[in-house]
């Protein structure tokens, strides 16, 4: 598999794996609170709370979304984190940026990775049905289709791109041709959806889509948030 295909697979698995499951059924305020406390913890930069925050992300991701999803999240988030830490360290040695020790560079890596993972986990736990229902409650009935459509099209596009890249390997054609054709396919897909479902999109949604809130997972989010606050307070 090509590097692009591998990256596409990672993004697909980190954000879109599974359907309406556990974390996606937790109350949105519990998820927002958890994300806010994670960002606060990372911004303070104390090593132990940041380590605990990262551990909480890993455990929550593995149980609430899936082991393969959180592993993909960690790999994806480690790429920019590694780049940040490396440029800061090498830049310091070369005299371009202020000098930092290897320990500080590792600290930058962990904080950046924790931040990226927190954002990815939050995106992965978003529920488009809830966003659509919120828009319906706000009276934006024709807009309500778009969150659903976005979560429908983005993973489909990634999935199709992965499939097209696999076929290009079998066809032994050049990579750029396959990427161009994948992008053309995604554009075509969007046009055809508009053509096939134009009247339904324009009709909008009059009523909310049935959706349950999972109390257990909402409580877990709240408990983790409180735990992180307590750690800041005591350490």
């Amino acid at each position: 598999m090509s590097i692009i295909g591998w990256l596409i697979g990672l993004i697909e698995r980190s954000i879109f794996l599974g359907g309406e499951i556990k974390a996606r059924l937790a109350h949105p305020l519990s998820k927002i609170a958890y994300l806010a406390i994670l960002i606060y913890t990372i911004s303070r930069g104390d090593p132990i709370p940041v380590g605990v925050a990262l551990a909480s992300i890993i455990i929550l991701g593995a149980t609430a979304i899936g082991v393969e999803s959180i592993l993909s999240t960690l790999v994806v988030s480690s790429i920019p984190a590694f780049w940040l830490a490396l440029t800061a360290y090498v830049g310091g040695i070369a005299g371009i940026t202020p000098y930092i020790t290897l320990i500080i560079a590792i600290g930058i890596f962990i904080r950046s990775m924790t931040f990226s993972s927190a954002i990815l986990l939050f995106i992965a736990s978003l529920n488009p049905t809830r966003i659509a229902n919120l828009l319906i409650r706000l009276g934006k009935k024709t807009w309500a289709v778009y969150p659903l459509l976005s979560w429908r099209l983005i993973p489909q596009g990634l999935h199709d791109m992965g499939e097209a890249l696999s076929i290009y390997k079998l066809k032994k054609t050049t990579l750029w041709k396959s990427i161009a054709s994948s992008i053309a396919t995604i554009i075509d897909y969007t046009n055809r959806i508009e053509e096939s479902a134009f009247y339904r999109i324009e009709a909008g949604l009059e009523e909310q889509i049935p959706l349950k809130t999972n109390i257990v997972w909402s409580t877990i989010y709240v408990a983790l948030s409180i735990g992180l606050v307590m750690i800041q307070f005591f350490i």
Binding site: L148, A197, A203
Partner: peptide, 24 residues
């Protein structure tokens, strides 16, 4: 339509089924 995947607007089976009915 002929290619059914172009008629799907929502991300999960339940959301698709319900949103198609609610729109009508």
């Amino acid at each position: 339509p002929q290619d059914p995947w172009y008629a799907i607007l929502a991300h999960t089976v339940l959301a698709e089924y319900c949103s198609a009915l609610i729109a009508a």
